[in-house]
C-alpha cells in the first residue's frame, strides 16, 4: 500500500510541480486548477511508466483524484 502511495506521489510531483507534497492526498481535478484533461493524460502516462503497467485510459477516466487513483491502482 505504501509502495503505491509513494510511487503515485512521485508521479504527482512531476505532473504538478507547483503543488505542495502535503496536498497530494487531498488533491483532485475539482480543487486543482492545473488538473485538466491534458494533465490527466500526462499523469496517467507517468503512472503507467512508474508502475510498469498498461493503463486503460477509458477505465481510469473517472479517477480524477489522488485517492481514486490510489484505490484503482491497488485493485489492479
Amino acid at each position: 500500500m505504501d509502495d503505491v502511495r509513494e510511487k503515485l506521489s512521485r508521479c504527482f510531483a512531476l505532473a504538478f510541480p507547483k503543488m505542495d507534497p502535503s496536498q497530494y492526498a487531498a488533491a483532485s481535478a475539482q480543487n486543482t486548477k492545473e488538473w485538466d484533461s491534458i494533465a490527466q493524460l500526462r499523469l496517467l502516462t507517468l503512472v503507467s511508466e512508474e508502475f510498469g503497467r498498461d493503463i486503460d485510459f477509458e477505465e481510469f477516466e473517472g479517477a480524477t483524484s489522488f485517492q481514486a487513483l490510489e484505490q484503482a491502482l491497488q485493485v489492479q
Binding site: C11, A15, P17, R42, E50
Partner: peptide
C-alpha cells in the same frame, strides 16, 4: 517521460 518532466521542472 518522468525524466523529461524532471528536466523541465
Amino acid at each position: 517521460l518522468a525524466e523529461a518532466f524532471q528536466i523541465i521542472g
